[in-house]
Write a protein that binds this DNA or RNA. Structure first.
Length: 275
DNA sequence: CTCCAGGCATATT
DNA sequence: AATATGCATGGA
């Protein structure tokens, strides 16, 4: 079925889907993106105003609500950008990636993906995640190029595997973390519902118990997988960007209270050669 | 060849 | 509490 949102702005699919917050989207030649989200195969295109999503989901009213939530279309990014632009450096960040948005992604997929991201680069992270899905995820259909596509494997499936089973991922030492995260989720020892009810420091503490999850990964999961925009702590990569961007310290108005500002800062810093 | 990638666990001080 | 080191893999 097709889901359509009118008058969506600002938005850049490339900055949003290919900036390192999600790892299952691939750009097509015409600027649209093909990806798998929560067991759906999706093709997304955007013409500067209309956001159109062709999804393999077999209809239902919930589908539109799902994508509205995924792209955080309830958040007024235009207003956020105005707010951030009051600070001259953040204004540069906004200008650098004016169409970036923070996606609301599945908690468990985000957790496993960012465990894989440890001391790793985006292209290889994508490769490992792809092999993870190909080998252990359910088939969800064929994409635009006719390739068979798989969903992200369930916690139960991954929890049933051994480290030897994961060797095909070529994930290196991150395999132990993948298994620990899957087992905790599968056994109900790490539940999205529980984390949602906790305040951010408590949720963060719970995430840090997972093997392979440190401050950086925990913060990424809080932001991308648990929607903790508000009291999101300044994490490792932002501190690094900060040192370059804000030698005299953090401007008081934005970053400590909004994850999106961190995305702006990161993308600005990453691609402008500041660090 | 070396260096490093959106770090973390562990050992050492 | 703070700092140092090894780590799997692959691209630059």
């Amino acid at each position: 079925m097709n889901v359509r949102f009118d008058d969506v702005a600002p938005l850049s699919l490339r900055d949003t889907l290919d900036c390192g917050q999600a790892f299952r989207w691939t750009a097509l030649d015409d600027g649209s993106f093909s990806g798998v989200v929560d067991g759906r195969l999706a093709m997304v295109s955007y013409d500067g105003s209309v956001l159109s999503i062709e999804t393999s989901a077999t209809s239902s009213a919930g589908e539109k609500a799902f994508w509205k939530n995924y792209f955080a279309l309830d958040i007024d990014y235009s207003a956020l950008q105005q707010e951030y632009s009051a600070d001259p450096t953040l204004a540069k960040c906004v200008r650098f990636a004016p169409g970036i948005r923070v996606l609301r992604q599945d908690f468990y997929e985000t957790l496993v993906s960012f465990i894989i991201s440890q001391n790793n680069n985006i292209s290889r992270i994508k490769g490992i995640v792809e092999r993870l899905c190909e080998n252990f995820g359910e088939e969800v259909g064929t994409d635009a190029t006719g390739r068979l596509v798989h969903a992200f494997p369930s916690p139960a499936k991954l929890a049933s595997l051994s480290l030897e089973d994961l060797a095909c991922l070529r994930a290196g030492y991150r395999d132990k973390g993948i298994l620990d995260a899957a087992r905790r989720v599968a056994e109900g020892r790490l539940r999205h519902d529980d984390l949602s009810r906790m305040d951010t420091p408590s949720a963060r503490k719970a995430l840090l118990e997972v093997y392979g999850v440190g401050p950086k990964v925990a913060d990424c999961v809080l932001l991308f997988g648990l929607g903790r925009f508000e009291s999101f702590p300044v994490d490792v990569w932002v501190r690094r960007a900060m040192a370059a961007l804000f030698p005299n310290g953090l401007p008081s108005n934005a970053v400590s209270t909004a994850g999106i500002a961190q995305q702006y800062i990161f993308n600005y810093a990453r691609t402008s050669g500041l660090w």
